[in-house]
Amino acid sequence: MFIDFPLGHTAGKAGDKAGQRRIMIDTLSALDSIQVPGTIRALPYRWADTDDWKDSVMRPDGAGHHNDDRTSREAEPQYEREADRLAAEADGCPGCFFPES
């Protein structure tokens, strides 16, 4: 299923419980209806009345500069909050899996 929303909103808009539910119902229904492997369906929902939000995604800014919005690729755990680090060190990471490769 494809949804034409900004990255980070694959399952709906924040706080929009009804919209999130519709997206998931439509997605689940594809399990019943899709019969051909590799089929891609587009969900009918729009992020906003206009597509203006798309103009700045991975595009040069007003000064013509390309910017990389991603943060640097650190090799250490990147905790959302500092307190999370202490909790993880105390708990020994239950439910964590580190497959070999």
């Binding site: 640097s72 090799a75 755990p77 105390a90 708990d91 964590c96 899996f97 580190f98 497959p99 490769s101």
Partner: peptide, 13 residues
């Protein structure tokens, strides 16, 4: 209580 992910090809889950 769990470890956060790191950003260099972290294949843990």
């Amino acid at each position: 209580g769990q470890k956060a992910f790191h950003f260099r090809d972290d294949v843990s889950f």
